[in-house]
């Protein structure tokens, strides 16, 4: 796609081989995790005698159980759904907010623009784990009394609070992406008499799809794997807190944790594969939509 016509093939082989070598630990580590999820015992050394094929781990996980005997059946579908709600919610909020703010920081000149950028960066110096105390206070103050909306509110709050943590990073990223778009595209719209808002929506957004995807991907993953905010604020469980709470060095049947971990990875892998066409679809030279 990129420079196919002129690129020498030989080099690309060398590059692939190099990355492959660098990736070996990753490949080995994660392969063993997946293999172990089909075994009665964790496969960790290359000793085949520790592998005994079983589907029991996966069956248990689909029943929401992370124990060979006993344990409690957790509503695994519900938990997966909760995780999706949180992750998609965070991704949506972060993408929308940062696409708006990133544009104005890149394209509109106003006083305090630079300071705003620096403030955003500095905010990140404040670790989320400490911030959570303040966020908790606010939650406490705004917590609804009515039992009917408590669950809904806890989802809303987790999504917004967790999204806020991703905002500084995403706004910075988005600004960078808007910066790379040649100014001429925007001018053509403004000359036609469109407002900045229309220009942003009709011209700029389609042009920075890769940026939007990168931001959405990180936000999605942040929501998908968050533990601290979710455990503290969300009334229901998500996959991340479910796995975390059931991993205990002494009791846990690790192959089942491996199966749960693999299951947990699947939606994110699907998300990445379907979305990555967008990531690669760069600026193509024309104005769309």
């Amino acid at each position: 796609m990129k420079d196919v016509e002129t690129r020498p093939r030989r080099y690309s082989r060398v590059i692939i081989l190099t990355i492959l070598l660098a990736s070996l630990p990753l490949i080995v580590g994660f392969s063993l995790l997946v293999i172990s999820s089909f075994s009665t015992e964790m496969v960790t050394n290359l000793n085949p005698s520790s592998f005994h094929l079983t589907l029991e781990n996966w069956i248990s996980v689909f029943h929401g159980k992370l124990a060979t005997t006993g344990g409690i059946r957790a509503p695994i579908l519900r938990i997966t759904l909760n995780t999706l709600i949180v992750a998609l919610g965070v991704a949506g909020v972060v993408t929308a907010v940062s696409a708006l703010a990133g544009y104005s920081l890149s394209r509109v000149n106003f006083r305090g623009r630079k300071h705003m950028m620096i403030l955003l960066l500095v905010l990140h110096a404040f670790p989320g784990v400490a911030l959570i105390v303040g966020v908790y206070l606010l939650y406490r103050l705004t917590f609804p009394q009515s039992m009917d909306i408590v669950r809904l509110y806890s989802f809303m709050y987790v999504i917004f609070a967790r999204a806020a943590l991703e905002i500084p990073m995403s706004v910075w990223l988005m600004k960078g992406f808007f910066d790379t778009i040649p100014w001429e595209f925007e001018w053509s719209g403004i000359i036609d008499g469109a407002s900045r808002i229309t220009v942003w929506r009709k011209i700029m957004l389609p042009l920075i799809k890769p940026g939007i995807l990168a931001v959405a991907l990180f936000a999605f993953l942040a929501g998908w794997q968050d533990i601290i905010y979710v455990r503290t604020f969300l009334i229901d469980q998500t996959l991340a807190t479910f796995i975390e709470a059931n991993i205990e060095a002494e009791f846990s049947h690790m192959p089942m944790i491996a199966a749960a971990g693999t299951l947990y990875l699947l939606p994110t892998i699907i998300f990445f594969i379907t979305a990555q066409q967008l990531l690669l679809q760069g600026y193509s030279g024309g104005i769309k939509g």
Binding site: L120, F126, V133, V135, L138, A161, I167
Partner: peptide, 12 residues
């Protein structure tokens, strides 16, 4: 978002 979930908690 920043005020509600960053600045206010930060001051707190």
């Amino acid at each position: 978002m920043v005020v509600l979930f960053y600045l206010v908690p930060l001051i707190m």
